[in-house]
Each structure stands twice: as structure tokens, then as C-alpha cells.
Amino acid sequence: MSFVELKQVLKRYDTKVTVNHLSLKIEKGEVFGLLGPNGAGKSTTIHMLTGLLPYDQGEILIDGRSVHKHTIDIKKKIGLVPQDLAIYETLTARENVTFFGRLYGLSGKLLRERVDEALDFVGLKDRAGDKPGAYSGGMKRRLNIACAIMHHPELIIMDEPTVGIDPQSRNHIMESIRKLNAMGSTIIYTSHYMEEVEAISTRVGIMDHGQLIACGTKEELLEQLGRDEKMFITVDTLRDSVLVELRRHPHILSVEVLGNELEMLLKPTDTVFQDILFILSSHQIKPISFKREEPNLETLFLSLTGRTLRD
């Protein structure tokens, strides 16, 4: 039995389907990276998992129990790190964590210990008496995490926890996630930063249009991608007509323009490179440099969704 299981889950807003018969299994102890462009249905999925939002069809099981039927019990097992900073500016860091700890049923000595532990874990113990207004963006993000982990949740859901912070705080958060995972928590992690997902996830799921379009370990996914490769060609000039012709080519999966550089995802065949050179020369465009890149999750994402992660 998987720790988290979504079975044919459907969610509609009026007539618009935001999560479309989504099925997914996450094992205990995993760090599962959930990727998808904006509007793919990630946040809705997270809200359904945490019991914040009811689903219309299907079933979500956490530790074998239905989220719909046992919402309050399931919530005790989950720690949600929301995308937005959900902390009180009028309270100190310690008061923030204490308040949310009380909502999870902690009290007395245990509550005090857990609050200290959580603040220590995110590196804010020395600033526990300060209000968030005196914190940097990264410190606020860390407090946002502390409020979600003080009750030792079995499942931690992090919705873009590193948005808009400095590299030092990002590293701290990434290290914290590894530690939490090592301590036994299962983690679902969404991010717009592909390198973060690649670095910490044991498995990755890619969502688009409310559906899971790919799921597996990084290696499995890249296997799925096949031998598609990314090529960068710098040219002396660019014309729209050449882009149209390149995009028509059956083995060129996508073409992006970055200044005078063409970024292309290719199905490597014997002739595709020659074809590109021919198309360029037929438009009197002179290539200046070439670069090939090994396939990665970014490539896969582009290949599957036709968009970059930050679109």
C-alpha cells in the first residue's frame, strides 16, 4: 500500500476541469517532485491532498485512509508549507510557531520543546523573539517552514518554498528538506526551479492540463525522453521565415529564440543536423557556433508540455 494514493481524482470549477482523473502513488519516505506550468493543477492537487478542497470524483488515500472521510485525522499527519507566507506579522517567530503548534494539539512542555526544535531546525532560534517584519525574505520562508513541521508530520507538502529568496536561504531550505526526509517524513515538493527538483527528488511527476503526463525517477523520465537532445546555434542574423521552416521539420520538436541564439530540441537522426544547416543557408543565415546539451528534466519538460517551467 502506498503512503499517498490518488485514484482517478477529478476536480471541476464550474465547468472547467482543473484536475482530470489524476492517479498517482507516492511511497513512504519519498521526496516527490511535482512539476508543471502555471495552471497545470498542482496547487489544486495539493489543496485536495491537505483536505482544504473537496474533490468531485475519485479517491485520495493517505496512509490507507480517505482524506474525504477522515479529514481531521489526516490533517494531523500533514504539514503544509504554503506558497505564500502564511505567518502573522504582529507575532514573534516563537508565537507564530506556538500558535500553529496548538492547533495541532500540542501543549505544555512538549509544545515548548517542539517550538524550540522547529526554530532551531530552520536556524531561527537566535531570532525567535523577533517579529517577521525584522526578517529577510529567506528568514520569513524558513519561519513559514517551521510553522509546518513542529508537529512532526509524516507527510510534508511544500508548495514552492523557495520563491524569491537568496541562494544562502535556498541552500538552507534544501538542506532542511533532506534532513526532514532522513528523519522519516515523506515530502511532496513543487518548484519552478528544475535544478532543485532534480537535486532532491527521488521521483518526479509532471502535470499539465490537470493530468499527470510523466512520472518516475529522473533516469526513467530521461529514458522516456529517448535520445532527444538540445542544441544551441548562434547565428549572424535571424528571420521569421527561417523559424517557420525549422518548426515545420518533423525531427525538430521545438525552437526557441534567445537573441541571436536558437535553442532547439531535436530527435537525433542521421540527417537532422544537415537539414538545419541547409535551412539556415537557404535563408542566407550564417551559423557562428554550435553547442549540444545532454538531455535533462528541463528538456523533458519542454518536450512534454511545449513550455518551459517558468512559462
Binding site: 482544504l52 481531521i72 504554503p82 505564500d84 502564511a86 502573522y88 510553522c147
Partner: peptide, 14 residues
């Protein structure tokens, strides 16, 4: 508006 309501009801609270 500050999303603290979301966090509160993500806890085991009606």
C-alpha cells in the same frame, strides 16, 4: 488575504 486562514484550516481545525 494573508493566507493564514489557509494554514489554519490545513491544521486539524474545523
Amino acid at each position: 488575504e494573508n493566507k493564514t486562514l489557509q494554514r489554519m484550516i490545513a491544521a486539524p481545525v474545523a
